[in-house]
């Protein structure tokens, strides 16, 4: 269901929509993905709701920043590789410019007493934010009543926190386990279907 309008206009709208969303959304990937849906499904009606849900799932399950992934899937769906490229550039420009500007002042501000105390306190705040995120996500995992998931969580925590195992290895191991479990489940389903 590609838009009927000419491609140049699609690309222009894609560029300015993703630029705007990236420049004004605080709070990271999940927020941006929701706004992408609002813009392209509800407002422009260029993508259907169900398809958008799958595209969001791709953006969330692939590695990398969710906002960038979301821009890529939407751009690719609307205008192919060129669309993906346009969406990426538009998503990256705002944080790049803003952070560059902030880091100019950062060095000067850090040594200031007021700012250094603020930053020290915010360290406790960051730890609290991470603790609450872990609490919410962790209870979801425990509530899912999947023994395998709880075991994976415990093993991954022991590996990274106690034994200092590289996180890359943990990610690879968990992904491999997921592939194995899915293939096994598919084989079992096929066998039972054959009976």
């Amino acid at each position: 269901m590609n838009p009927a309008g000419d491609k140049a206009q699609v690309l222009r709208r894609l560029f300015f929509s993703t630029l705007y969303l990236s420049a004004f959304t605080f709070g990271g990937g999940y927020v941006i993905v929701t706004l992408l849906k609002k813009k392209f499904v509800d407002e422009y009606r260029w993508i259907e709701e169900d398809e958008m849900l799958d595209l969001v799932a791709i953006a969330q399950s692939a590695p990398g920043p969710i906002a960038v992934n979301g821009a890529i899937v939407v751009g690719y769906k609307l205008a192919g590789l060129l669309g993906a490229a346009v969406a990426i550039v538009a998503t990256v420009i705002p944080p790049f410019v803003i952070i560059s500007a902030v880091s100019l002042f950062y060095e000067a501000f850090r040594d200031n007493f007021l700012v250094s105390q603020m930053l020290a306190g915010m360290q406790a705040g960051v730890a609290a934010v991470i603790a609450s995120v872990v609490w919410q996500m962790g209870t979801d995992v425990v509530r899912s009543k999947s023994t395998a998931s709880v075991l994976v969580m415990a093993a991954a925590f022991a590996a990274t926190c106690l034994f200092g195992v590289n996180v890359v290895l943990v990610v690879l191991a968990a992904a491999g386990l997921g592939v194995a479990r899915t293939l096994l489940a598919q084989r079992r389903a096929k066998k039972e279907g054959g009976r």
Partner: peptide, 15 residues
């Protein structure tokens, strides 16, 4: 399937 196995590991790494 991959996502389902990754999610608990990601929670642990964030922790």
């Amino acid at each position: 399937g991959v996502l389902a196995s990754l999610r608990p590991a990601v929670v642990a790494m964030i922790a």
